[in-house]
């Protein structure tokens, strides 16, 4: 049984009962152990601990304040963006007046009007975009 105890192997039921009995018969050591003194820590030790704990509390408060402020700023920013963007999204797509005017003047289909408006805009901006029917190669 000693080997089992030292090697921390599982005991049989009988061995466990024997161990329980043996533990109950060991009375002197618990008595001596109970008489041992702990010795209170000094006031300086406690004071140092209090300071460390207060520093921890202060740090936590600073962190929580920072979190609150940053959270508030983020929420405000989101609200502001939503306030600006929402009316625009609700009003639908904006149609350029120039396109409408061209479409009306041509009396043709919308696609044709858009194409004409696009080509005119390109020519106006001076990008030199050649139209499909302008013909000619770049070298000619």
């Amino acid at each position: 049984m000693k080997k089992k105890l030292i090697e921390e192997q599982p005991l049989t039921i009988e061995e466990s009962l024997r161990l329980d009995e043996a533990l109950e018969s060991q009375t002197i050591v618990p008595r001596l152990m109970g008489k041992l003194e702990d010795g209170a820590p000094s006031l300086a030790w406690r004071s140092a601990l209090n300071e460390k704990l207060l520093a921890q509390t202060g740090r936590r408060k600073r962190v929580s304040t920072f979190r609150w402020v940053s959270g508030f700023a983020a929420t405000t920013a989101i609200c502001l963006v939503a306030f600006i963007a929402l009316p625009r999204l609700q009003s639908g797509p904006i149609v350029d007046n120039a396109v409408t005017e061209v479409a009306n003047s041509n009396g043709g289909g919308l696609e044709e009007s858009l194409l004409t408006a696009h080509l005119e805009a390109d020519i106006e901006s001076g990008l030199g975009v050649s139209t499909v029917d302008s013909g000619g190669s770049p070298g000619s």
């Binding site: 105890l5 030292i6 921390e8 329980d20 060991q26 050591v29 618990p30």
Partner: peptide, 12 residues
């Protein structure tokens, strides 16, 4: 339990 027994035996 086994550690407690051994510890007390050592102390004894």
């Amino acid at each position: 339990k086994s550690r407690l027994f051994l510890a007390r035996a050592h102390m004894q």
